[in-house]
């Protein structure tokens, strides 16, 4: 990882020096162990703050739409993109929220992000002093000794089933030992869910979402959710009540999931943002699979794509029409 980090830092230094970019978005160490936070680097002195490790989970593309209009015209933004982040970025270009020439994409072929809960949930106590990682393992050095975790088993679900670990579009690519893409469709979790009885499926949906506290972090973490006025906050008309009643919560989620149809890249940022650990991916992934199975489309692979719901084909199925007898 040290090699990747120094490659990253050298690249950014050069880019800033040559004025190829106005500033760079990457990650720095967070205030708690195993955490990183987004890091915006403008000056060369700050470049050393940049880090790369298996905890760089944020999807940085989420900042682009609100940030770029604030910058002096012509400023190019450098951004560090994992596979999924780059797809979000490309989707923003497809949706005409961003111009390709406004960004310089520093791609990183990703080997998957580690779910911190899977580490901290299995600690024998002790304070984390240092973290090391290699291709197989994550090693936590505690004041009580050392604990090793298999990387493969500790990945986030979205990373375990990642279809495109290497960025779809980039200007510079940093290679890490990338894990082989798994394009299983439908996702095993979805295939299992589909087999359940109708009532049980609904109960799972209700049970998951009954934990939701309506903080909207899932929306705020998602690069697709750039709407200036989200339906959740519209007042004319107000679509659903502001209470924590299940029916209001479900309304928000059903609509959010539907707004993701044909756009969600399964990056998992929404799931990681959720303080209640609601398994949102179970529901967005259903539509991701439907999009793939039915329309053979994966969003965010090429800036020249057309938005799935913005175009049509005369072959589109009409199987759900009302039948007249």
């Amino acid at each position: 990882m040290k090699r990747v980090e120094s490659e990253l830092i050298t690249n950014v230094e050069e880019l800033l020096e040559d004025k190829k970019i106005g500033f760079f978005m990457g990650y720095e160490n967070g205030s708690l162990p195993l955490r990183t936070s987004p890091c915006f680097v403008k000056e060369k002195e700050d470049v050393q703050r940049l880090v790369w490790n298996c905890f760089c989970t944020n999807n940085l593309s989420v900042y682009l739409v609100s940030l770029i209009p604030e910058l002096p015209a012509g400023t190019k933004v450098g951004i560090l993109c994992k596979g999924c982040d780059s797809r979000s970025l490309v989707n923003l270009i497809v949706e005409k929220q961003l111009k390709r020439e406004d960004v310089l994409i520093m791609g990183i072929s990703c080997s998957g992000m580690i779910n911190i809960d899977k580490l901290t949930g299995n600690l024998d106590g002790g304070r984390i002093l240092e973290v090391e990682e290699n291709e197989e393992e994550v090693i936590l050095k505690l004041d009580t000794g050392e604990q090793r975790f298999s990387r493969k088993d500790s990945l986030y679900e979205s990373c375990k089933n990642c279809t495109h670990p290497t960025p779809s579009v980039y200007d510079i690519l940093i290679r890490v030992g990338e894990h082989a893409p798994k394009s299983v469709c439908p996702d095993p979790m979805i295939a299992k869910f589909r087999q359940k009885e109708r009532l049980e499926r609904w109960q799972i949906f209700e049970r998951e979402l009954s934990r939701c506290v309506r903080c909207y972090a899932c929306r705020n973490a998602c690069p697709n959710c750039y709407c200036k006025e989200c339906f959740a906050e519209q007042t004319k008309p107000r679509w659903f009540g502001l209470s924590n009643e299940l029916s209001d919560v479900l309304f928000y989620h059903l609509v959010r999931i539907l707004h993701q149809a044909g756009r969600c890249v399964d990056c998992g940022a929404c799931v990681r943002a959720c303080p209640e650990k609601v398994d949102l991916r179970l529901f967005t992934r259903m539509l991701v699979d439907e999009v793939k199975e039915r329309f053979d489309y994966e969003p965010g692979l090429s800036p020249n794509d057309s938005h799935l719901l913005g175009v049509f084909s005369t072959d589109d199925t009409q199987e759900f029409m009302v039948e007249v007898d």
Binding site: R201, W202, F205, A261, G262, L287, L308, F312, T317, F320
Partner: peptide, 17 residues
């Protein structure tokens, strides 16, 4: 466009039981 949007609505709600 309605057809596609409606398609996803049907599929999602149906899968959710």
């Amino acid at each position: 466009k309605t057809l596609r949007r409606y398609h996803f609505m049907k599929v999602l709600l149906e899968e959710l039981g």
